[in-house]
């Protein structure tokens, strides 16, 4: 247990009381080791933010416990807060301050002073590339810069645990790329545990080593992004673009193959050689259909423009996991 940076034990949060109460987080348990980058997934209102707020000590759990670096949040909140870097949703910061004075405040509040403080601030500034806007009121900064100010604040004290609530939400693709690069960089050393919530699945594939899906306050999946994607019905599905002779019923041909569950039409395009058909052939669970398709195409002598096997689609798995959760 010693090398677990975060340990949640049946963490539960109920808002309000009586019949009108809402069970936002329902017995969530998991632990995170150093070096892990955990993507916390779930639809809006699934309890991601609430769980994070309980880990960081902003909200008190109704029952259960959260431990960070061995300290219980309820019993020693200051020890926990000193070890966490937290980027709340929307990266709130004092609007009338400049990034420079804001970071100075955060460093002082964390008990830093003198050259140690100066050094920590400089390092956070260079990591988040804030040099150009240090003296501008945070109010006047673009969304991307504001987010970076929030990130700088979170990594100021080199926390062993970094928690980020939707770090890339609302950013443009370039800014998203930047933030993800920074997250990967922060994870690089392998001594830190990072938790980030998101509902952007490409983000999980891009930066996370582990994904936890939460729906209606409950953990419904806990796996690596690759394992998770493998649960998709698209796992090992084959997408082909080919130009068959006119009048060939290729969908029926594919359908007849052993192990094929269904064929999805992805559209057609007219080329000089004929009509190019693109489709995805979905296997029955656990079946490998690529060899059969290759053989069929070869024996019929169809012209293949493109053919690839899919690892699976996270969004598909996500939808499946979270909508079955919703039915309960």
């Amino acid at each position: 247990m010693t090398n677990r940076l975060i340990e949640l034990d049946r963490l539960t949060k109920r808002f309000g009381s009586g019949s009108g109460s809402i069970l936002a987080v329902d017995g969530v348990s998991f632990s995170i080791a150093p070096g892990e980058v955990l993507g916390f997934l779930g639809p809006n209102g699934a309890g991601k933010s609430t769980t994070m707020k309980m880990i960081t000590g902003y909200l008190a759990p109704t029952s259960g416990s959260a431990k960070v670096c061995g300290f219980d949040v309820g019993e020693s909140p200051l020890d926990v807060k000193a070890r966490i870097g937290y980027l709340p949703e929307g990266a709130p910061a004092y609007a009338d301050m400049t990034p420079e004075s804001f970071l100075d405040f955060c460093a002082r509040a964390r008990g830093m002073s003198g050259s140690a403080k100066r050094g920590a601030i400089d390092k956070a500034i260079s990591r988040t590339s804030l040099q150009g806007v240090l003296r501008q009121p945070i109010d006047t900064l673009s969304k991307g810069f504001k987010r970076r100010v929030g990130l700088a604040q979170a990594i100021l004290h080199e926390p062993p645990v970094l928690i980020m609530d939707e770090p890339t939400d609302g950013l443009d693709p370039n800014q998203k790329f930047e933030v993800r690069r920074l997250i990967r960089e922060l994870a690089g050393q392998g001594e830190r545990a990072i938790v980030l919530s998101t509902h952007i699945l490409e983000e999980v594939e891009a930066v996370c080593t582990r994904a936890i899906v939460i729906a209606k306050g409950k953990v419904v999946a806990d796996a690596t992004p690759i394992e998770l994607a493998a649960r998709s019905r698209y796992h090992n599905a084959v997408t082909v673009s080919l130009v068959p002779p006119a009048g060939t019923a290729i969908f029926e041909e594919f359908q007849k193959l052993a192990g094929v569950a269904s064929v999805e039409d992805l559209g057609r395009a007219t080329t000089s050689e004929g009509v190019r058909v693109t489709c995805t052939v979905i296997p029955s669970r656990g079946k490998d259909i690529a060899p059969a398709i290759t053989q069929l195409v070869r024996s019929k002598n169809w012209r293949v423009d493109q053919m690839r096997t899919e690892g699976g689609r996270l969004d598909d798995v996500f939808r499946e996991l979270t909508s079955t959760g919703a039915k309960n």
Partner: peptide, 10 residues
């Protein structure tokens, strides 16, 4: 929302 930030500082 800065209350959340302030509350999670040590």
């Amino acid at each position: 929302g800065t209350l959340e930030l302030l509350s999670t500082l040590p």
